[in-house]
């Protein structure tokens, strides 16, 4: 686990989740990470309904042509400092859909990504670890101010 984590816990992370054309596999694991078994909400991590409230952007899916614009807009609406986490192989590399004509992803091509969570679908532990990585980044940015 990242160094200096106790310090990082001083601020709760709010997460905005976009599905850019994923198969739901990652999305249900994200919710599973928030539910009692893994319970990320006890650290104050919660899903919010608007990108304007969020510190972290959580993207799943390989980004279809119709969703590019929406992903970009949501990213621009987020206040700085912000972190972007890509959950799942298809957002990171294209995975099984790599050759499809309707994909603009991987998400690296569209917006800058900070944390890549690998897996199809990644386990909730994996997703929580990714959020902690993003947390460390945000706290480092904060400390530099």
């Amino acid at each position: 686990m990242a160094k200096g984590l106790p310090k990082a816990f001083k601020k709760s992370l709010w997460v905005y989740h976009i599905n850019s054309g994923s198969c739901n596999g990652c999305d249900i694991e994200i919710i599973a990470a928030l539910c009692p078994r893994y319970d990320a909400e006890r650290f104050g991590i919660k899903l919010v309904g608007s990108p304007r409230h969020a510190d972290v952007l959580l993207i799943t899916g390989p980004v279809t042509r119709q969703m590019v614009d929406k992903v970009k807009r949501a990213y621009e609406q987020m206040p700085d400092p912000k972190a972007v986490i890509v959950v799942g192989n298809c957002g990171n590399t294209g995975d099984v859909f790599y050759e499809s004509y309707n994909l603009v992803g991987p998400i690296d091509n569209i917006i800058p990504v900070d944390v890549h969570v690998i897996g199809c679908a990644p386990r909730p532990e994996n997703i929580i670890y990714g959020v902690i990585k993003a947390w460390t980044k945000l706290e480092t940015l904060e400390a530099k101010k």
Binding site: G21, S22, C23, N24, G25, C26, D27, I28, G61, P62, T64, Q66, M67, C90, D95, V96, F97, E99, S100, Y101, N102, L103, C120, A121
Partner: peptide, 27 residues
């Protein structure tokens, strides 16, 4: 919005590879 061209991709793979593609239609 979720059109990923799965059927199109399937016509370029063999039947066993399609199993794993079909799995990712819906999680």
């Amino acid at each position: 919005q979720v059109h990923r061209g799965i059927e199109w991709a399937g016509m370029r793979r063999n039947s066993i590879q399609i199993l794993y593609l079909a799995e990712r239609i819906c999680g």
